[in-house]
Amino acid sequence: MTKALILTVRNWWEAQPERPQISQVHLTVGQFTCVEPVSLQFAFEVQTRNTFLEAAKLVIQETPLIAFCHHCQQEYRPELGIQYACPDCQSPMEDIRSGRELKINRIEYCSDSTESYASNL
């Protein structure tokens, strides 16, 4: 998963007219995915040493698993590892509204703009 993330960021970076210094990569990671944010942070740090992403930090926003029960016409929060059906009517979890996200939201990068500042300041 970390390799996939680095590859996707690299594809974007190589397509930029001036390849910037990336400072932060903002991700949304859903609870109903196979990604554990802490592990991803660790693996990212290890795999980006001595690369264009060495200075970059991962900023991860986790989204909860939220399902919608069409029978009850309301949202509910399945209990991971315990119960996924609707707690009120036991209908199966068929409509996941949140929790499957694996997204790169945005990238923060720096640009050298020394010419904007006077050298005698």
Binding site: M1, A4, L5, L7, T8, N11, W12, P20, Q21, S23, L27, V35, L102, K103, I104, N105, R106, I107, E108, Y109, C110, S111, D112, S113, T114, S116, Y117
Partner: peptide
């Protein structure tokens, strides 16, 4: 002096694999 820019990607992390 460094300036910070934002690039909105909204790309699926597994985009390349997909």
């Amino acid at each position: 002096m460094h300036q910070t820019f934002d690039a909105a990607l909204e790309i699926n992390l597994l985009h390349a694999n997909q």
